[in-house]
Each structure stands twice: as structure tokens, then as C-alpha cells.
Amino acid sequence: MKNNWFGLLVAILLSGGMAIAQGTPDDYKRAFGIYQKYSDKVMYSGVTPQWIAGTHLFWYVRNTPEGEKYVITNADKKSRTPLFENQKLADQLAKASGKEVNPRKLSLAACRVNASLDTVRFVFNQTNWSYAVRKNTLKNEGTVPNRAKERHWMERDEEKTSAPVLSPDGKRVAFIKNDNIYVKELITGKETPLSIDGTLGNYYSAYIQWSPDSKRVVSAKIRPVEKRFV
């Protein structure tokens, strides 16, 4: 009987210790708060390279005392130069979007740089933009589609609609038309179908991806099924 009581006491102590070690929601909030408070205080802390197709160049965001700087690194020459001037781009974005833009924190999403380093494409304020670095000109390339949140945890996006996807070289867009993949030349406006077997019951996904050399596109073929929810 004594041994049984001893085992029970040990189990209670262990379970209590595990509960304490798990932490509370407030503990997690404080932990995340520390990160948010000090994350921008560490300068030059890391490099996440984004390689530019067909070159030995990559760009990354550098955390400096003057704010986030977008820089280009030449792996052959071991040199680093600014990708663009933050203030110039911030002024253009503020003028075009009507919103206040902090040049120290541009927050450019889905950023892409062409091989000649003269054009930067990115998403800002739910809009696709193209920035000509040397000319200091900004072009609105369309609104990013607002994909509604799933209404049920088992329901999936049907991938029927999406904005045309621009090729990395900026010369073409790929999109879905009549359940098939099409490519359009931006200069001539010519449209070319890349598939002919897409149907309402077996269509191509509108979430298209380009290869880095702008020569190929990738999409999935989708066959809708009856929705059953638990």
C-alpha cells in the first residue's frame, strides 16, 4: 500500500511540473513581444540570398542602422551595391498608392529582379508593381486577387481564378482561358494556347508558375469532386 501511495505522489509531482513547464498564453505573448521589440536592433545579422536566373548575382535585404537596404551581390567580383534608392522608391509608391510609405521599411512582397538589374517587380498594398530603377518610374501591373479564407477546414480552393502571371523576363503573361493555359505576348498582344484538353470537369489550375528562364510554365490539372464535410 505504501508503494502505491509513493507512486501516486510521484505521478502528481511530475504532472504538475509538466503543466508548469508548458507555459501560459501570457508567457507566449511575452516571448513574441521580446522578439518584436528587439528584432530590428540586431544589425547585419543574416543573409537570405535570392539568386537571379542566368547570372552569378543575388539580392537580399540588409538590416542596417538606417533601415532595411536592398542590395545586389556579385559572387564573381565579391562586390555589393544598392539595388535601388529607398527614398526614391518610397516617394513613387506613396504618390501612386496614396499611402504613407516609410523608406526605412518598404515591406516589398514577392520581390523579383531581372537579369539586367534595371527592373524590380513586387507586391505592395495588394497590388503588383514594376519599378524601373534607372528611370525611377513605377508602373501598376494590377491588383492581387483576394482569395477568400476557407469556409470549412476540409474545403479547398478550386484554383479557378487568378491574375495573369508575368514571366520573369517581363515579356509575357500566362493565364487560364476556357479551362486551358494561354500565354500572351505583351508587345504584340498575341495569345497562344499551351493546352487544348482542359474541360469544365478536368481543368488547369490558375495558379501558374514560370521557370526562371521564362521558357516554360507549370500548372496542375484539377478534377473537381463532390464536397463532403465532416
Rank of each mutant, 00 (worst) to 15 (best):
140 N>G: 08
136 N>S: 10
153 W>K: 12
142 G>F: 03
149 K>R: 13
136 N>V: 11
144 V>M: 08
140 N>V: 07
151 R>Y: 10
142 G>D: 05
150 E>D: 14
141 E>Q: 10
140 N>Y: 10
149 K>V: 06
159 E>Y: 01
132 A>S: 01
159 E>V: 01
143 T>V: 12
159 E>F: 03
147 R>D: 04
153 W>G: 07
141 E>K: 05
149 K>T: 05
146 N>H: 13
148 A>R: 10
151 R>N: 14
159 E>S: 06
140 N>W: 05
141 E>I: 12
138 L>G: 00
142 G>V: 04
136 N>T: 15
151 R>H: 04
137 T>W: 04
158 E>T: 10
133 V>Q: 02
151 R>S: 09
137 T>S: 09
157 D>A: 04
139 K>R: 11
160 K>C: 07
138 L>N: 02
150 E>C: 10
155 E>T: 13
139 K>F: 00
150 E>L: 11
134 R>N: 08
146 N>P: 01
149 K>N: 14
156 R>F: 01
159 E>P: 03
132 A>I: 00
150 E>Y: 10
161 T>V: 13
134 R>T: 06
149 K>L: 09
156 R>Y: 11
162 S>K: 06
152 H>W: 15
159 E>G: 02
160 K>S: 01
142 G>M: 03
132 A>K: 09
135 K>D: 05
144 V>S: 02
147 R>H: 11
147 R>I: 11
134 R>F: 06
161 T>G: 01
147 R>L: 11
151 R>I: 10
139 K>E: 13
150 E>K: 15
144 V>Q: 01
134 R>H: 06
146 N>G: 04
153 W>H: 14
158 E>V: 11
148 A>P: 02
146 N>D: 14
